[in-house]
Design a protein around this nucleic acid. Structure first.
Lengths: 342, 342
DNA sequence: CTGAAAGCGCTTACAG
DNA sequence: CTGAAAGCGCTTACAG
């Protein structure tokens, strides 16, 4: 592998001049600039990333911390990846993918070994064990997901409370008075997945205010369990005319379940979900849904993170940005069917 | 940040001794070993990754090259990620996620800047432009996906030809004599996605041998296009009693399409796909399918890659391993329905 | 406008 | 069993 010393020798200049020619941090004669460029070309020179990081204390790498947990919905994570990775590349950063069951330990490792200039935390829990580690570190961090304590970090998330209210309102306005809310698996809540109860609590309160009956339940993240749970729920609440979904696997399973029961949306039951449009189009999810905008959240997180990395002055106040939900109408809701004959 | 010099000073030894105590590459007195460990603990010392990489020419990082192409099926990629990332971690490697539209250029960059000790290439095309770059590099590479020329790399893939034969055989044995094969979008083929035509060509040949009519078509990777295409195909081939799916989005869309036509599997039509069981369970895909084993392929690729990295002797011959397909029965196939009345 | 030199934080022959 | 020193490949004050 060619080094900058080789480049300097071939170009007939000193190593420092070669370095300045590459970085452009000093004005050089056109002649020298050209000779260095030629030498680089001739030798196929690429700077050694480790050496550069050592000299500059900058890696131009961002850490992406994802936790793929058992029975959590992995595919949704992919969409955040895309937003994060495309934005990082545009801004000149590579991505170190850190996926370890022990989040805090691996976060500490990549931060204190200086492998990254900053980190994006995905799937942030209410009381996330990675946050104390992040706050103690030199590097900044941006979160996708709203924790209880946002001090010292930039936070981006969908406004799940408003989403819950909006879903309930939407059905109420159409005339529904009883509905079922299908949540993520109970494990997600146990792990501190606050978005589940943020949506649920707000939905419940809104239902109460509107004098609407809202049943809530957890559902699994895969078949055959999720299908059975949906059947059980519909059995248990025969008077419910609406279904709210905060669970992608349940959204995938519901069409089959409804078909098995001889029901159709919106004629027999109105359904409204919470997932991205990309997701809906890829997996043929036919229901109106609150857009979860994963690519946009990933993009916002990276932009803010890079801004913080590159401004030496990190005295700028930290931000908490909750995206307003937008309901995309796919025609799966309508007025409730008339009450069944007694 | 504490350096190894700090550790040495606190422990009252030289820097080299501290280094040896950490690496265990030299026998030291228990006393010294203990003092160093205490100093590390006290200072919260973690070695600087860049400095270590510079000194050892080893980064303990693997490059993961994924290309997220427009209208390609991104979620399937996630499953390879999981296999790759879990295996890498087990073997002590971190992962640099490289997702750039220009594959060859970014591959060259991460290789020649020595950011990684080796790379895993996902989504490998027949004549993949990244391969010449990889062959010219110092570091080894493992592929998931079978290219035309496998020299100098280790290759892992599902045996798509055998998969095609197996899907056709399965339907033929049940008595089907006319079927439709739904492929990935045409763009995938145009980009050199050889797995599409490897499966298709083998399926066609097998059909010919068995005197079975097999229609083939491309389908899109999302709604509403993919649904329309499925309807059009079923319209065009009313005598077909079987459907083969080599397209995950089509597998998601088919249940709705069949329902709209008042058809059911396996009573009216037999369906067999090609996707992972994880996928089927997560997205409620109800069809019998050839398991595509993405996690296993990712795992195999990383294992082989690390073996090659860590054996200085890379004279070991390169391997090409094609996984034998296994058909998982989900009850979506049966004897063909009697021919419709004329 | 350019060069010689120090330093980033490690590891590892070399010497004792 | 341990230490002093060189070197990995860069960048950047410092000096001219």
């Amino acid at each position: 592998m060619a080094t900058i010393g080789d480049v300097a020798r071939v170009a007939g200049v000193s190593r420092s001049t070669a370095s300045y020619a590459l970085s452009g941090k000093r004005s050089l004669s056109d002649e020298v600039r050209r000779r260095v460029a030629e030498a680089v070309e001739e030798l196929g020179y690429t700077p050694n990333a480790g050496a550069r990081a050592l000299a500059t204390s900058q890696t131009k790498v961002l850490g992406l911390l994802a936790q793929f947990l058992e029975d959590e919905f992995a595919p949704a994570m992919m969409q955040y990846f895309l937003g994060v990775s495309n934005t990082a590349r545009q801004l000149g950063y590579d991505l170190l993918l850190v996926n370890e069951p022990d989040g805090p330990a691996s976060l500490r490792r990549v931060l204190s070994s200086r492998m990254v200039d900053g980190v994006v935390l995905l799937n942030v829990a209410e009381d996330d064990a990675r946050l104390p580690v992040l706050r103690a570190a030199q590097q900044p961090g941006a979160l996708v997901g709203l924790p209880a304590d946002c001090t010292g970090v930039d936070v981006f998330d969908l406004d799940f409370e408003e989403s819950g209210r909006q879903m309930v309102d939407h059905l109420h306005r159409l005339g529904h008075r009883e509905a079922v809310l299908v949540n993520q698996p109970e494990h997600v809540v146990a792990r501190g997945g606050a978005y589940v109860w943020r949506l649920q609590d707000a939905a419940l309160e809104e239902a109460r205010r509107r004098d609407m009956v809202l049943h809530t339940a957890f559902a699994e993240s895969s078949q055959p369990e999720v299908g059975r749970t949906l059947h059980r729920l519909l059995d248990a609440h025969p008077a419910a005319t609406g279904v709210l979904l905060n669970n992608e696997a349940a959204a995938s399973a519901l069409p089959g379940v409804l078909a098995e029961r001889g029901l159709r949306a919106p004629d027999d039951v109105s359904v409204v979900g919470r997932y991205s449009d990309d997701f809906a189009r890829t997996f043929s999810l036919p229901y109106s849904a609150v857009e979860s905008a994963p690519d946009r959240l990933g993009q916002m997180a990276v932009r803010q993170l890079v801004r913080r990395i590159e401004r030496a002055a990190d005295d700028e106040p930290h931000v908490v940005r909750l995206l307003s939900p937008v309901l995309l109408d796919r025609g799966s809701t309508g007025p409730p069917r008339p009450a069944p004959h007694p």
